[in-house]
């Protein structure tokens, strides 16, 4: 896996997991790989992997049950909120790019509808 070396690696791996959770690829209540396995499968430092889970837990997206492992939260409302957060981030990025190109939000919206209908 390639990482952007300028951005903290835990952040990049966390984003990847968040996407998996938001898209349902990792459904609510699913057991996540152990920190060690995450480190190995993503080829990252074990401390980085531990940090990923710490951060995910802090935001309530996963829960660690002592002796059992880490699981995706079963709080579907929280996941719905995550989906919206990610969507907003994507939109913000989109708007920023479009603005830089000098295209008005209305025009951009028309282009989105066109793209959608094709």
């Amino acid at each position: 896996m390639q990482y952007d070396a300028n951005i903290p690696i835990w952040l990049q791996v966390m984003t990847m997991l968040q996407t998996d959770i938001a898209t349902g690829q990792r459904p609510p209540g699913e057991k996540l790989p152990s920190g060690r396995d995450l480190a190995l499968s993503c080829s990252i430092n074990p401390n980085t992997a531990a940090r990923v889970y710490q951060e995910l837990e802090k935001t309530g997206l996963c829960v660690t049950r002592r002796g059992l492992g880490t699981f995706v939260t079963e709080d579907t409302a929280r996941i719905a909120r995550l989906r919206e957060e990610l969507a907003r981030q994507a939109v913000a990025q989109f708007v920023k790019t479009v603005k830089e190109l000098g295209i008005s939000p209305q025009e951009a919206l028309r282009m989105v509808t066109e793209e959608e209908n094709e």
């Binding site: 300028n6 690696i9 980085t48």
Partner: peptide, 15 residues
């Protein structure tokens, strides 16, 4: 600490 450096200085180890 590399992640601290990436966060605080915005640079990679290579940078």
């Amino acid at each position: 600490d590399l992640d601290t450096m990436r966060t605080e200085m915005g640079v990679s180890m290579t940078d």
